[in-house]
């Protein structure tokens, strides 16, 4: 008897959260990297207010993206190294539930780091990042990035050079998403804000949907081959 879809997804998410609560392996490495990264940027970029407003979304996304590489690699590597991936694959569940379970887990870890960054960056750069629209863009961008990242990490984790390979294969694919996320947040944060952010948010939403559907369709093939 097949386990219901949402129950299986929830079980995988709960497993990931419990593992993380006990080991704090992902959040600590991602968080520490992110914190160091924004500190270095804040020392390096001694900018005036306008320049800061224009640069800050770049700093935010570079930090979130590279922190998520760390998390995605570790999250899937742990599954493989501990034999969990095989155990999940022989469970009486639809294979796509593994994708959605891992996606939700990876998203929660990355968005936690992103949400922690916002108040810290607000203090360091003196630009208010805690705004509903910026939060919405952060959620959408992180979701898209972890969607494509979960699929690609499932592939690269099977290789020897997995840590290096993930950013290489992911960056070209994630480029439209990053472009839309950076443009939308820059437009929201600069004084000269125009209505352009609406178009970029729409593009971001569209890319999110396309990536989600593509990754959903490809996951079963990727995991079996």
């Amino acid at each position: 008897m097949k386990t219901p879809f949402f129950k299986a997804v929830l079980s995988i998410v709960r497993k990931d959260l419990r593992t993380e609560l006990r080991s704090r392996e992902l959040i600590s490495s991602m968080g520490l990297f992110a914190l160091l990264s924004i500190l270095v940027f804040s020392f390096a970029l001694e900018l005036d207010r306008i320049a800061r407003q224009e640069a800050i979304s770049g700093v935010l996304w570079v930090t979130v993206v590279f922190a998520s590489f760390l998390g995605l690699n570790r999250s899937l590597a742990m599954e493989r190294d501990q034999g969990n991936l095989d155990a999940m694959l022989i469970a009486p569940i639809a294979r796509t539930t593994i994708f959605f379970g891992k996606l939700v887990g990876n998203f929660l870890f990355t968005i936690t780091v992103g949400l922690l960054l916002l108040p810290i960056m607000t203090v360091l750069y003196n630009v208010s990042l805690v705004q509903p629209l910026v939060l919405a863009v952060l959620f959408m961008g992180t979701f898209g990035f972890t969607t494509v990242g979960t699929l690609l990490a499932t592939m690269t984790v099977q290789t020897r050079a997995r840590e290096n390979l993930l950013p290489i294969v992911m960056m070209p694919l994630a480029l439209p998403l990053l472009l839309a996320a950076v443009k939308a947040s820059t437009n929201l944060l600069t004084d000269s804000a125009t209505e352009d952010w609406v178009a970029w948010v729409q593009i971001l939403a569209m890319v999110d949907v396309v990536y989600l559907v593509m990754c959903y369709l490809l996951f079963e093939y990727v995991i079996e081959e």
Binding site: K2, K15, R18, T19, R22, G83, N84, D86, I90, P92
Partner: peptide
């Protein structure tokens, strides 16, 4: 057969959850 749980599998590593 997988969905009906017709088989169990044992791997080289015990793959037990430590917690």
């Amino acid at each position: 057969a997988r969905i009906d749980q017709d088989y169990g599998m044992v791997f080289q590593a015990a793959t037990l959850y430590d917690w």
